[in-house]
Nucleic acid binder design. Sequence first.
DNA 1: TTGATATGACTCCAGAGTAAGTTACCACGA
DNA 2: TCGTGGTAACTTACTCTGGAGTCATATCAA
Lengths: 214, 214
Amino acid sequence: MTSATSANASARRSGTKGVARADREQQILDVAGQVFAEHGFTATSVADIADRAGISKPLIYNYFGSKEGLFERCLQVASELLVAEIERTAQLDVVGIDRALATLDGVFKVLAGRPWMWRIANDPTAPEIGLALLGSYRRRLEDIAIVGVGQLLTLAGDHDPLDLEALTAVWSSVFSALVTWWIEHPDVTPEEMTSRCSRLFGVVFGVVPKPSGA
Amino acid sequence: MTSATSANASARRSGTKGVARADREQQILDVAGQVFAEHGFTATSVADIADRAGISKPLIYNYFGSKEGLFERCLQVASELLVAEIERTAQLDVVGIDRALATLDGVFKVLAGRPWMWRIANDPTAPEIGLALLGSYRRRLEDIAIVGVGQLLTLAGDHDPLDLEALTAVWSSVFSALVTWWIEHPDVTPEEMTSRCSRLFGVVFGVVPKPSGA
DNA sequence: TTGATATGACTCCAGAGTAAGTTACCACGA
DNA sequence: TCGTGGTAACTTACTCTGGAGTCATATCAA
């Protein structure tokens, strides 16, 4: 990801434990992601992460500068992946409920096996710097959501800008609620969850969406 | 509220500043509610609250025992009021979307002028003890929500218990999103917000609900 | 020897909580 | 109308702890 030792990062290189920089960095990020997800930014101490990673605290500062710096990197990895997936789906030629379903399906698949990404991206105790970063990602998602919601409202003859704003907030929260519910039910597979969403949309909108092909 | 000086709590009574216990308690609760709502439990220090109230820190400990104790009291006041209102509405002879609207309307009216109550009841940095208290209130709300959602699902022939659970989570989040959106738009009156909700439900469900009479 | 990796043992500070004293007011007796 | 003691309200000036962040030093590959 960074630059040095790009070819064979796993090869022994130098230093007390013989762990190459890129490897160590990745390892710390992995562990930090887990721990931050479990307890939230504020309730997590750098010493916790160091312990779990089997290294010492100063090493983390050596690699990431500060607790916030470390969190920011975790957040960036997670957000980047999620937003990229959602933007990818938005390019597809699908609209309405089907598009919503496709987006959810994509997120479920990205998140499968890495639920910590979702928790970090929604950590309410995140520090200022993290909130700023999150804000920029959220704005990108908002842009996408607002288009879909706008189509729905326009179709219904509602042109009130505040209605658009409010309904977009509602849709975002529905999206989050579904993903969060799934994260809290680790036994449910992405496929099962997608079909559950499809079923629920059908009930709510009184429509049977065509089975997702993606 | 407490016991002593019940008749005329505002009358001077005794002590350095001549403020009666019940008055001071209320004053601290008011200020604490504001400050906790602004910054969240974790980011608020007891000294902050003391400063804003124009008193000293130990006085707060004298009255409430601990930072958590103080927060718990704020939370209790807020939750009690909100849950009572929602349960009251649930008694009414209204079902479906109309009931949802009536509930929202009630909450908007309770919250008008005291938005801090909503923020505190949704403070993600609340301490354990607060979460426990919140849990009990939330369970009461869940009981109500689950009935309404259950009716909808049954009507649609869906009897999957996990579907019920998930859709209830979604509905709760929609409810929260609407209230939160409103809290963040202080210029919108409760009446305006209720009619906005009514309009949005109409768009989403493709139904025009009858104008709320309550 | 040099330079990167790594750590034990610190410093430092914010913020929760406390001990001990101070002030104002009241109710009484002389 | 003075003490004088009782008591509730209130404050100053602390202690103590958890946790962020740092420094001097050690280990190892080349």
